[in-house]
Nucleic acid binder design. Structure first.
Lengths: 226, 226
DNA sequence: CGTGCATCTTAACACTGTTCAGATTCAATG
DNA sequence: CATTGAATCTGAACAGTGTTAAGATGCACG
């Protein structure tokens, strides 16, 4: 089954048709495998992934991926890295939407982060799976750092600290607090842990907004000496 | 590979030392399997687990676990549930340590939560793996709720809201904020995402303390109307 | 026209989870 | 005490999995 596609209209041209592969060489296997993996993640979740299934979907033998990615973790690392890049794009869009007000910026970034997680559950779960993708890979670290740098800059702006200036411990604590909070909220939402709460009050986005409001309004007041 | 299946010339022997299985019936297989699974998680991480390995470790055939847990997920669900129970115990200890001051209580709970995660990385990772253990299982849900109820009560005390009283949206936001923050911090710490930061400032526990201080001190000031 | 080389296939290996018919033992009943 | 029914565990089998090695294939460049 699945061998039905017959479209030999174009003879010996570069064909990247998904299933129909009458050429021995695929031509763009790397991208095709990534696309296949993403499709599987979307349909069957992160647990339903298998390297062989991805190869099957790309119309290629089970051992073909090894040549391009070495490992199953190699392929998934690439998928995760692209996920972080997409997340970074979303965060940059939110950055523009936020405008000049640091508080509004932070709120938009937080909403964008959570929205991305809810929109791509399996991909986000994969991004934080140490045992599926190799977190040491430079490709992944770089993509992830790019996304998190956006968040850090927003907190720095909120605290009125120049991008180059060193952080005092309290500001550092706030950066981590913001990061942890948004990340934790996204994870809990993905695990369905917030569904109960979501029933009592609106959808997750308004809940998050309320949470961010509570935080930000509290933080605008300087701390009581310490 | 190497494990030679030396045919047991003598059927009923007490060759095995501690877990001597001279009987056909194991007697306490359920607990033995849980212990084996926990040992594997400890040694090889959550990715290195396999049902067959757990059975092997308990000195039992690969199909024996099915009778007690049905599934691999069944066994892991039991492990996760026990993990939540142990977490709840730790949280209760922290509760006593916190004393009467609501802020101190929250801080101790947060530290205990993160400390537990860092002390049992694989177990905690398992607890939030939807695809490994069945999150619908009553056993698990109950154990998890028990732990989270402690956190909720602490936040309510901090806000001066009686245990039975309904929460206004702002308080609800704070509960979620606290929960998300601690959970997110723990997850990020497990993923090693905080190692860079930990290098610049002390260990993770002091970082967390600073973060909690920043949050709590900010939150003691009432919000600017709104 | 070769020929090198990246690309892909076929075949095999050592695993995995799960199922099912049977062997074994326990416990309770007659 | 003996018998029997239920609980427990074994052994073999099946369908998949990731990974590797050795061999086919076709593109690009001399």
């Amino acid at each position: 089954m699945g061998r039905g596609h017959s479209a030999p209209a174009k003879p010996a041209e570069k064909r990247k048709g998904a299933a129909a592969r009458q050429h021995y060489h695929h031509g763009a296997l790397k991208d095709a495998l990534v696309a296949a993996a993403e499709a599987i993640l979307l349909e069957n979740g992160v647990g339903g992934f298998s390297l062989r299934a991805a190869a099957r979907r790309a119309g290629v033998s089970p051992s073909a991926p090894a040549h391009h990615f070495g490992d199953a973790a190699g392929l998934l690392t690439e998928v995760a890295a692209r996920g972080f890049e997409e997340l970074a794009r979303d965060l940059r869009e939110a950055e523009e939407r936020g405008g000049a007000d640091p508080a509004a910026l932070l709120r938009e970034l937080g909403r964008a982060y959570v929205a991305f997680a809810l929109q791509h559950p399996a991909r986000v779960r994969l991004m934080f799976r140490r045992d599926m993708c190799d977190p040491q890979a430079e490709r992944l670290k770089q993509a992830a750092d790019e996304a998190y740098a956006l968040l850090e800059n927003a907190v720095r702006a909120f605290c009125g600290i120049a991008p180059e200036e060193a952080c005092d411990p309290r500001t550092m604590g706030m950066i981590l607090a913001a990061w942890s909070m948004v990340h934790g909220f996204a994870q809990l939402a993905l695990d369905g842990a917030l569904d109960v709460v979501a029933g009592e009050m609106g959808d997750l986005d308004t809940i998050l907004s309320q949470m961010l409001s509570a935080m930000l309004s509290a933080l605008t007041v300087p701390p009581p000496s310490k």
